[in-house]
Each structure stands twice: as structure tokens, then as C-alpha cells.
Write a protein that binds this DNA or RNA. Structure first.
Lengths: 111, 111
DNA sequence: AAAGTTAATTGTAATATTGCAATGAATTAA
DNA sequence: TTAATTCATTGCAATATTACAATTAACTTT
């Protein structure tokens, strides 16, 4: 019904799924890449950069902020965003934990 | 409008977003973890394991198959699924490419 | 204070996703 | 052949996501 049964799954599974959602839209990937490259930026830049409406980008930024991958500070009339490095490491580890579970690929592909 | 404007983004951005979608549901994360642990399994096992309806799991399996992260072979009346190790490496690299772009965390967190 | 700037929020429309019952297709067992 | 088993597919309902115009909120400039 479009509603995920989170209670059926472990904390780890739900966490990873939620974090993966942040990367599950090209606009959010683009925002993250841009923030990494720029070291800091403001929403206005992204509107120019991405070609989406201001409201849409603001919405994507909120989603990224909600999972903690980015953080923003009001600077006068504009807002500066950047990657939250602590959270970034956490997320990186969350993925790598899964990636590293699959070992010795040569013994797999059994079907 | 619920429709992603893929033409605004690069191949890499769209690829990563699409792959991230595979991990963006706890049931699919659970399926992947189970396949890694079991080395191979069939749909029926997963219905017991996850507590979702057979049709729902079949649907998640199809999505995972579509991005190539798993593969299946018909074995008599049942189907064996396993991780596709080549694709697994590709996906791992796709994520790590992004993760590794963010370097020297101590110099960040500028806002 | 009035006007301008920047970005969040609200409201709305369209499409996507999730979930499952029912059904269908393919194989196996009787 | 008939029944049973396994899993994919279809059809449907409910919720989520994506996108944007319009508005609002907060600050700056004039």
C-alpha cells in the first residue's frame, strides 16, 4: 500500500534503507557532489546548477538535512550548506559494512 | 509530479541514484543480506524469513534482478537466487567513488 | 519604513512505490 | 492425467515521491 512495514526489519536494515533513499535521486546525488566540490555553497547556486525549481531543490535539501548528511547555516539573507563529515563517515561505514559482507566473489555466482 | 527529470543529470548521477534505489527498502536490504549469508536461496525461504506476502517478495526480487545485483535460475519447481559478484563489485565501486570524493573531513564542516 | 533578496513552506497535481489477493505458468508428484 | 508446489504476473488500493507556482518568513538595502 505504498507504506513500508518497517517493524518487520532490523534497525540496521531500516537505517541503511533510509540512508540509501538520500542517494536514490539524481538531484540529491548532484547536490552532494556539488557540495563536496565546492566545499560550501548556497541554495541559489544549486538552482542555477541543477535546473530545477527553487522549491524542488529546497525540498531535496531538506531531505538530505533530515538524514543528517548535510547541514546548513543562515548567513545573512542566504544559507550555506555543507557536508556533515561525522555523518558522512557513519553513512560510508554503513554501506561498507554491507559491501564487505560479501567476500570471496569467486566462490559465488552459484546460479 | 513524481517523475524524475533524468535528462538534467549525468549518467553517473542517474546510475548511482538507480542503484541506491535497490538499497532504499529494508526488505531489499534484508534479501541481499540473506543471500549473502545463505550463498543461495529460493523465494519460498524468503517468504518465511521476511514475513511479507509471496507476491511482494517476488516484486522486490524482480527489482533487484533488474539492476543486476542478483540473478536467478529455475531449478525444477523452485528458483535459486544469488548475488551477481561482478555487478556487486561495480555497485560497490560506484558508491566508493562518491564516498572517496569527500576527503580530509577535518577541513570541512564549514557551516 | 518600503522594497528587494533568499530560501522555506504550503498547496496541488502527477507519477511512483508498496503490498497483497487472485490468477497464471511451469514443473513435479500421485 | 490430476493434484500439488513454486513463483511470476496482474489488478487494485493506499501511501510516498517528485515537481512547481504561490506564498510566507527573515533578513538587507534603500
Amino acid at each position: 500500500m505504498g507504506v513500508t512495514k518497517t517493524d518487520l526489519f532490523s534497525q540496521e536494515q531500516n537505517d541503511l534503507a533510509q540512508v540509501a533513499k538520500a542517494f536514490a535521486h539524481p538531484a540529491r546525488v548532484a547536490i552532494i557532489q556539488y557540495l563536496i566540490k565546492a566545499d560550501a555553497c548556497i541554495n541559489g547556486d544549486l538552482v542555477q546548477e541543477l535546473g530545477l525549481a527553487q522549491a524542488t531543490i529546497s525540498q531535496h535539501l531538506r531531505e538530505l538535512k533530515e538524514i543528517g548528511i548535510i547541514q546548513g547555516t543562515i548567513e545573512g539573507v542566504s544559507v550555506s550548506y555543507c557536508i556533515n563529515s561525522t555523518r558522512w563517515e557513519e553513512i560510508k561505514n554503513l554501506f561498507n559494512q554491507l559491501f564487505d559482507k560479501f567476500i570471496d566473489p569467486s566462490s559465488r555466482d552459484c546460479c
